[in-house]
Protein backbone atom coordinates (compact mmCIF):
# COMPACT_ATOMS: atom_id res chain seq x y z
CA UNK A 1 0.00 0.00 0.00
CA UNK A 2 1.56 3.24 -1.04
CA UNK A 3 0.33 5.30 1.85
CA UNK A 4 2.14 3.21 4.43
CA UNK A 5 5.43 4.75 5.50
CA UNK A 6 6.60 2.39 8.20
CA UNK A 7 5.88 -1.27 8.71
CA UNK A 8 6.91 -3.02 11.89
CA UNK A 9 6.48 -6.78 11.73
CA UNK A 10 6.69 -9.06 14.69
CA UNK A 11 9.65 -7.48 16.46
CA UNK A 12 10.80 -8.95 19.70
CA UNK A 13 13.38 -7.85 22.22
CA UNK A 14 14.38 -9.35 25.50
CA UNK A 15 17.18 -8.40 27.87
CA UNK A 16 18.19 -11.53 29.69
CA UNK A 17 14.96 -12.80 31.17
CA UNK A 18 13.06 -9.55 30.76
CA UNK A 19 10.87 -9.24 27.68
CA UNK A 20 10.89 -5.63 26.63
CA UNK A 21 9.03 -5.90 23.35
CA UNK A 22 6.78 -8.81 22.64
CA UNK A 23 5.85 -9.76 19.06
CA UNK A 24 4.95 -6.22 18.12
CA UNK A 25 3.47 -5.37 14.74
CA UNK A 26 1.94 -2.18 13.42
CA UNK A 27 1.88 0.14 10.45
CA UNK A 28 2.21 3.88 10.23
CA UNK A 29 0.57 5.76 7.38
CA UNK A 30 2.05 8.82 5.72
CA UNK A 31 1.33 12.15 7.35
CA UNK A 32 -0.23 10.50 10.37
CA UNK A 33 0.34 11.57 13.90
CA UNK A 34 0.77 8.18 15.48
CA UNK A 35 0.89 8.02 19.23
CA UNK A 36 2.35 5.29 21.44
CA UNK A 37 1.07 5.23 24.97
CA UNK A 38 1.28 2.89 27.89
CA UNK A 39 2.33 2.74 31.52
CA UNK A 40 5.96 3.34 32.50
CA UNK A 41 8.24 0.52 31.54
CA UNK A 42 5.95 -0.63 28.77
CA UNK A 43 8.79 -0.55 26.28
CA UNK A 44 8.00 2.66 24.43
CA UNK A 45 11.46 4.16 24.43
CA UNK A 46 12.91 0.73 23.72
CA UNK A 47 10.74 0.73 20.62
CA UNK A 48 12.16 4.08 19.57
CA UNK A 49 15.66 2.78 20.18
CA UNK A 50 14.96 -0.20 17.96
CA UNK A 51 13.46 1.98 15.23
CA UNK A 52 16.49 4.26 15.26
CA UNK A 53 19.03 1.46 15.32
CA UNK A 54 20.43 1.81 18.82
CA UNK A 55 19.13 -1.58 19.80
CA UNK A 56 18.80 -4.54 17.48
CA UNK A 57 15.62 -6.51 17.54
CA UNK A 58 15.92 -10.23 18.27
CA UNK A 59 13.74 -11.04 15.27
CA UNK A 60 11.09 -9.56 13.03
CA UNK A 61 11.52 -6.81 10.49
CA UNK A 62 11.18 -3.12 9.97
CA UNK A 63 10.41 -1.61 6.61
CA UNK A 64 10.63 2.09 6.02
CA UNK A 65 9.70 3.38 2.56
CA UNK A 66 10.52 -0.01 1.09
CA UNK A 67 13.92 -0.09 2.74
CA UNK A 68 14.74 -2.73 5.27
CA UNK A 69 16.15 -0.95 8.26
CA UNK A 70 16.35 -3.29 11.18
CA UNK A 71 20.01 -4.13 10.92
CA UNK A 72 21.33 -0.71 10.02
CA UNK A 73 23.45 1.56 12.19
CA UNK A 74 21.84 4.61 13.78
CA UNK A 75 23.62 7.10 11.55
CA UNK A 76 22.50 5.28 8.41
CA UNK A 77 18.92 5.27 9.65
CA UNK A 78 18.97 8.96 10.45
CA UNK A 79 20.32 9.76 7.03
CA UNK A 80 17.50 7.70 5.52
CA UNK A 81 14.92 10.07 6.89
CA UNK A 82 14.10 9.07 10.47
CA UNK A 83 14.87 11.67 13.13
CA UNK A 84 14.23 11.63 16.86
CA UNK A 85 14.28 13.59 20.05
CA UNK A 86 15.38 12.03 23.32
CA UNK A 87 13.50 11.49 26.55
CA UNK A 88 16.56 12.65 28.52
CA UNK A 89 17.70 15.65 26.56
CA UNK A 90 20.85 14.95 24.57
CA UNK A 91 22.06 18.21 23.15
CA UNK A 92 25.61 19.08 22.16
CA UNK A 93 26.19 21.24 25.18
CA UNK A 94 29.38 22.94 24.13
CA UNK A 95 28.04 23.89 20.72
CA UNK A 96 25.88 26.92 20.09
CA UNK A 97 22.15 26.57 19.58
CA UNK A 98 22.65 27.26 15.88
CA UNK A 99 25.49 24.78 15.55
CA UNK A 100 23.39 22.06 17.14
CA UNK A 101 20.96 22.39 14.24
CA UNK A 102 23.70 22.73 11.63
CA UNK A 103 25.17 19.40 12.76
CA UNK A 104 21.94 17.75 11.65
CA UNK A 105 21.91 19.64 8.37
CA UNK A 106 25.51 18.50 7.78
CA UNK A 107 24.22 14.96 7.50
CA UNK A 108 23.21 15.62 3.91
CA UNK A 109 26.30 17.61 3.11
CA UNK A 110 27.97 17.39 -0.27
CA UNK A 111 31.40 18.72 0.62
CA UNK A 112 34.52 16.62 1.00
CA UNK A 113 37.32 16.75 3.55
CA UNK A 114 39.58 18.50 1.08
CA UNK A 115 37.09 21.28 0.44
CA UNK A 116 36.74 21.84 4.17
CA UNK A 117 40.51 21.89 4.50
CA UNK A 118 40.82 24.58 1.88
CA UNK A 119 37.56 26.42 2.54
CA UNK A 120 36.77 26.37 -1.16
CA UNK A 121 34.01 28.52 -2.61
CA UNK A 122 31.73 25.53 -2.89
CA UNK A 123 32.35 24.79 0.77
CA UNK A 124 31.62 28.34 1.84
CA UNK A 125 28.45 28.35 -0.18
CA UNK A 126 27.18 25.26 1.57
CA UNK A 127 28.11 26.62 4.99
CA UNK A 128 26.12 29.75 4.27
CA UNK A 129 23.16 27.75 3.04
CA UNK A 130 23.20 25.59 6.15
CA UNK A 131 23.38 28.58 8.44
CA UNK A 132 20.35 30.09 6.77
CA UNK A 133 18.40 26.87 6.88
CA UNK A 134 19.32 26.39 10.53
CA UNK A 135 18.10 29.89 11.35
CA UNK A 136 14.83 29.14 9.65
CA UNK A 137 14.38 26.00 11.71
CA UNK A 138 15.13 27.94 14.88
CA UNK A 139 12.46 30.41 13.88
CA UNK A 140 9.97 27.59 13.59
CA UNK A 141 10.49 26.69 17.25
CA UNK A 142 10.98 30.26 18.39
CA UNK A 143 14.66 30.09 19.26
CA UNK A 144 16.13 32.37 16.60
CA UNK A 145 17.12 35.01 19.15
CA UNK A 146 19.16 32.45 21.11
CA UNK A 147 21.10 31.23 18.11
CA UNK A 148 24.53 32.12 19.45
CA UNK A 149 24.09 30.96 23.01
CA UNK A 150 25.64 27.77 24.24
CA UNK A 151 23.08 25.00 24.16
CA UNK A 152 23.75 24.18 27.82
CA UNK A 153 22.60 27.64 28.90
CA UNK A 154 19.06 27.29 27.57
CA UNK A 155 16.09 26.73 29.82
CA UNK A 156 14.64 23.23 30.00
CA UNK A 157 11.71 24.08 27.76
CA UNK A 158 13.95 25.79 25.21
CA UNK A 159 16.24 22.78 25.21
CA UNK A 160 13.32 20.55 24.32
CA UNK A 161 12.47 22.91 21.48
CA UNK A 162 16.06 22.86 20.29
CA UNK A 163 15.93 19.06 20.19
CA UNK A 164 12.96 19.35 17.85
CA UNK A 165 14.62 21.95 15.64
CA UNK A 166 17.74 19.80 15.47
CA UNK A 167 15.77 16.73 14.51
CA UNK A 168 14.09 18.72 11.75
CA UNK A 169 17.54 19.57 10.43
CA UNK A 170 17.84 16.01 9.17
CA UNK A 171 15.04 16.71 6.66
CA UNK A 172 13.24 13.66 8.00
CA UNK A 173 10.14 12.04 6.65
CA UNK A 174 9.46 10.37 9.96
CA UNK A 175 9.91 12.26 13.22
CA UNK A 176 10.02 10.43 16.54
CA UNK A 177 9.15 12.58 19.54
CA UNK A 178 9.92 11.01 22.90
CA UNK A 179 7.77 12.64 25.58
CA UNK A 180 8.04 16.17 24.20
CA UNK A 181 5.61 17.51 26.80
CA UNK A 182 7.50 16.22 29.83
CA UNK A 183 7.95 19.00 32.34
CA UNK A 184 5.78 21.43 30.42
CA UNK A 185 3.04 23.44 32.10
CA UNK A 186 -0.46 24.04 30.72
CA UNK A 187 0.27 26.91 28.37
CA UNK A 188 3.49 25.32 27.16
CA UNK A 189 1.57 22.16 26.31
CA UNK A 190 -0.91 24.14 24.26
CA UNK A 191 1.97 25.79 22.39
CA UNK A 192 3.57 22.39 21.89
CA UNK A 193 0.39 20.95 20.47
CA UNK A 194 0.26 23.76 17.96
CA UNK A 195 3.93 23.37 17.15
CA UNK A 196 3.50 19.68 16.41
CA UNK A 197 0.57 20.35 14.14
CA UNK A 198 2.44 23.18 12.41
CA UNK A 199 5.59 21.24 11.70
CA UNK A 200 3.63 18.30 10.49
CA UNK A 201 1.94 20.52 7.95
CA UNK A 202 4.97 22.60 7.05
CA UNK A 203 7.36 19.72 6.54
CA UNK A 204 4.88 17.06 5.41
CA UNK A 205 5.99 14.88 8.30
CA UNK A 206 4.79 11.64 9.69
CA UNK A 207 5.10 11.82 13.44
CA UNK A 208 5.51 9.07 16.01
CA UNK A 209 4.78 10.37 19.46
CA UNK A 210 5.43 8.86 22.89
CA UNK A 211 3.47 10.76 25.46
CA UNK A 212 1.96 10.43 28.89
CA UNK A 213 -0.24 13.49 28.66
CA UNK A 214 -3.57 11.95 27.64
CA UNK A 215 -5.51 15.10 26.71
CA UNK A 216 -2.67 16.12 24.41
CA UNK A 217 -2.50 12.72 22.83
CA UNK A 218 -6.22 12.40 22.37
CA UNK A 219 -6.32 15.83 20.84
CA UNK A 220 -3.71 15.53 18.12
CA UNK A 221 -3.22 11.83 17.44
CA UNK A 222 -4.77 10.23 14.38
CA UNK A 223 -3.97 6.74 15.50
CA UNK A 224 -2.88 5.31 18.83
CA UNK A 225 -1.28 2.08 19.95
CA UNK A 226 -1.14 1.05 23.58
CA UNK A 227 1.73 -0.97 24.97
CA UNK A 228 1.80 -2.79 28.24
CA UNK A 229 4.80 -4.91 29.27
CA UNK A 230 5.99 -4.75 25.70
CA UNK A 231 2.80 -6.12 24.23
CA UNK A 232 0.35 -4.32 22.01
CA UNK A 233 -2.92 -4.41 23.92
CA UNK A 234 -5.01 -2.04 21.87
CA UNK A 235 -4.94 0.21 18.86
CA UNK A 236 -7.32 2.56 17.15
CA UNK A 237 -8.54 6.11 17.05
CA UNK A 238 -8.52 8.23 20.20
CA UNK A 239 -12.21 7.53 20.58
CA UNK A 240 -11.77 3.80 20.47
CA UNK A 241 -8.83 3.83 22.87
CA UNK A 242 -10.57 5.97 25.44
CA UNK A 243 -13.34 3.46 25.76
CA UNK A 244 -11.20 0.35 25.66
CA UNK A 245 -11.47 -1.58 28.94
CA UNK A 246 -8.09 -3.28 28.56
CA UNK A 247 -6.43 0.10 28.29
CA UNK A 248 -8.15 1.37 31.37
CA UNK A 249 -7.14 -1.76 33.21
CA UNK A 250 -3.49 -1.40 32.17
CA UNK A 251 -3.29 2.12 33.50
CA UNK A 252 -5.48 1.87 36.54
CA UNK A 253 -5.48 -1.80 37.39
CA UNK A 254 -8.43 -4.11 37.57
CA UNK A 255 -11.38 -3.07 39.63
CA UNK A 256 -12.81 -5.97 41.54
Amino acid sequence: MSDVLLTVKNIHKSFGGLIAINALSFQVKKNEIFAIIGPNGAGKTTLFNILTGFITTDNGEIQFENKTLHHEKPDVISRSGIARTFQNIRLFNALTVLDNVIVALDAHSQTFYLSALLHTTAFKKEEKKHREQAMQLLQVVGLEKQADRMAATLSYGDQRHLEIARALGLHPKLLLLDEPAAGANGSEKIALKQLIKDIQQQFALTILLIEHDMPLVMDIADHIIVLDYGTLIAQGTPQQIQNNPRVIEAYLGKSD
Binding site: R90, F92, D106
Partner: peptide, 22 residues
Protein backbone atom coordinates in the same frame (compact mmCIF):
# COMPACT_ATOMS: atom_id res chain seq x y z
CA UNK B 1 33.47 23.01 9.08
CA UNK B 2 31.17 20.05 9.33
CA UNK B 3 34.12 17.94 10.41
CA UNK B 4 34.96 20.11 13.38
CA UNK B 5 31.31 20.19 14.33
CA UNK B 6 31.01 16.45 13.96
CA UNK B 7 34.07 15.89 16.12
CA UNK B 8 32.75 18.16 18.82
CA UNK B 9 29.33 16.54 18.59
CA UNK B 10 30.93 13.15 19.19
CA UNK B 11 32.83 14.56 22.12
CA UNK B 12 29.71 16.05 23.63
CA UNK B 13 27.27 13.22 23.13
CA UNK B 14 28.12 10.18 21.05
CA UNK B 15 24.62 8.78 20.96
CA UNK B 16 23.02 12.02 19.84
CA UNK B 17 25.76 12.44 17.24
CA UNK B 18 24.83 9.08 15.74
CA UNK B 19 21.17 10.01 15.82
CA UNK B 20 22.05 13.10 13.80
CA UNK B 21 23.61 11.17 10.99
CA UNK B 22 27.25 11.15 12.07
Amino acid sequence: SRFGRAWMAIRENELAAQAMGI
